[in-house]
């Protein structure tokens, strides 16, 4: 198992390196942002660019880029959007908002999703199951920003329960901030709830019809005992890794939802960086997104092995 984990992590790091390299070179190939004349930062940025090897071959630049990250955690200086500021610190400033919003969202939606999924599976082929499944299907199909619009229009505008946009500021734990986050949290939750409902339902219906469930009943367990002890446990083999993946994924957040509710998070930073052509920020956020998605997939893979010994054995084929 240890060997498998090490193998997977190494492979992930290589993949990350290659993707970062491709992104880096592609972005450096674009002409760097024009710097304003007569600005005190201009000279500093030019000196920094010189130090980062802007006139050297791309692979040398990439080497310097990596060296700066590993030795000084230096991701460069923003040359458009936050003129003259350190990219890494801007990024660190934006991350909490995204994490808080998404954390609240999954804390709300994962239990709800799993509960609905279990409920639907236990009531399989009844109207309860049909209506849950249909709703799930609808929620998964409809883009998240349609829900965001509905929430914003009805709950924030018509009923006035929530503020329109997320509150500015850094008091992420205050009550007023929590209330202003709720529309965002709800919009993010729909998709997560639906996907967990679907996974849980599909998995549990399959487990419920397997032979060991019959055995469990035969040896005298009640239906509830058999379901909780045997069926749910087996169903979690699939659901638990998905939860882990979801937790890793909270960092990247949702561009669309963050834009609609003006969440001062990573998504907004990324969009602004693209629109302003601020390449240093763009590189950092791209690397971040790549790392998060790779990390999520590897965590899912490895957790399968930890949770279910059968899969661990299977990996050695």
């Amino acid at each position: 198992m240890a060997k498998y984990v090490v193998q997977r992590v190494l492979l992930m790091l290589i993949t990350l390196l290659i993707i970062t390299c491709i992104c880096f070179v592609l972005i450096r190939m674009l002409p760097p942002a024009e710097l304003p004349l007569n600005d005190i930062h201009t000279q500093v940025i030019e000196a920094r660019r010189e130090a980062q090897g802007y006139n050297e071959p791309y692979m040398v630049q990439f080497g310097i880029f990596l060296k700066n990250i590993f030795t000084k955690w230096d991701w460069g200086i923003s040359d458009k959007l936050y003129f003259g500021q350190d990219v890494a610190s801007i990024f660190a400033e934006k991350l909490p908002a995204t994490i808080f919003v998404n954390l609240y969202s999954i804390l709300l939606s994962i239990p709800l999703g799993i509960a609905l999924g279990i409920f639907a599976a236990l009531k399989k082929n009844t109207w309860v199951d049909y209506s849950i499944s249909t709703l799930t299907m609808v929620v998964i199909s409809v883009p998240s920003f349609v829900f965001a619009f509905l929430i914003q229009y009805f709950l924030s505008y018509k009923l006035g329960w929530f503020p329109f946009l997320m509150k500015a500021g850094k008091d992420y734990l205050s009550w007023s901030m929590f209330v202003s986050m709720l529309p965002t949290v709800m919009s993010l939750s729909f998709g997560v709830i639906a996907s967990f409902t679907r996974t849980t339902r599909a998995e549990l219906t399959e487990v419920l019809t397997s032979e060991f469930m019959l055995l469990a009943r035969t040896k005298g367990l009640t239906k509830a005992q058999a379901t909780v002890r045997h069926a749910l446990k087996n169903c979690m083999v699939v659901v638990l890794p998905a939860i882990f993946g979801e937790f890793i994924g909270i960092m990247s957040g949702s561009l669309v939802i963050e834009k609609i509710f003006a969440v001062p998070g990573v998504g907004g930073l990324y969009l602004n960086a693209i629109n302003a052509r601020d390449y240093p920020i763009f590189i950092m956020v791209s690397c971040f997104y790549t790392a998060v998605s790779l990390l999520a997939s590897i965590v899912i893979d490895i957790s399968y092995g930890f949770i279910d010994p059968r899969i661990r054995m299977g990996s050695k084929k």
Binding site: C23, L26, I27, I274
Partner: peptide
């Protein structure tokens, strides 16, 4: 295909647009 699928779609779209 692993490497390609590791690339976030949004990053990929943006890079193609820029280039």
């Amino acid at each position: 295909s692993d490497i390609l699928s590791g690339m976030p779609f949004i990053v990929c779209t943006t890079l193609f647009q820029l280039h």
